[in-house]
Amino acid sequence: MKTNVAELQVCSPRSIDEALQQRRDIPGLTPIAGGTEVLVWLNDAKFAGKTYQSLHGLAKDWRYVRANKDGTLGIGALATYSDVRFHPVVKERYPLLVESARVTGALQIQNRGTPVGNIANGSPAADTVPSLLVYDAKLKLKSLRGERLVDLKDFFTGYRRNVMTSDELITEIVLPPPLFMPAQQHYRKVGTREAQAISKVVFAGARSAAGVRLAWGSLAPTTIRALKTEAALQNGADANAAWEILQREIAPIDDIRSTAEYRRKVARNILFEFLNKLANTL
């Protein structure tokens, strides 16, 4: 490990209040749920801060996947990918989430990492975020000042930037009752290999009477909903017209894993594949 761990500080709150107090009082605190991303940073001495807050002690409060009576689903901040992936209600109602949790990292990562951590980390290549975007997920943000609900689609403001204030924690993902028929949902992860890969492009999409959803990863500084393309499809645009619009909604780049050109072509192909699938399930 390239980081001198003796130089790091870790706070381990025992209660929600204590956690929120620390958030308020200690500047530069990085919350850790599973820690699977932070470990990679520390190993390479990159990006990493010096002060961490381990939320592990709050598992009794925040490690849950809960189907509520009003038809919504709550995913607690410490629920792991495995918790989500194998939950019977998630399996029944939110197949894209199951699929995306299944292809995130390896089993070891899935047993430790969390969808909430995936969101907070803000990687544009996050595998579960596009699925959550399709399902109109909302986030509960909590601080000593109170609690607020933010649409996931409005959460990211730039590359690894978001609307959270420094005293807040994400406590829960709230999913509204599902709108989509399973046959009209589609997930595609294009990784560097078949398993344990970081995405070159990731897509989740669905359609119902309520509308079309297209969510993408690795095509812009954040994971995105392609709102304009969705609107055009809603208004009857054909595949080529939709692609014209989508092209202007994405901003892929060349990096160590792939090229902008490849990502653009794959985005086009996936869009067509998805629209084809929809056409065949009418």
């Binding site: 390479d44 290999r193 160590i256």
Partner: peptide, 22 residues
Amino acid sequence: VLKEGLMENHHLTNYVIPTSAD
């Protein structure tokens, strides 16, 4: 990926070897 002769992707996260699935 070589940059000035150096392997730029010198991490297992981005130097990709086949898994059993591949």
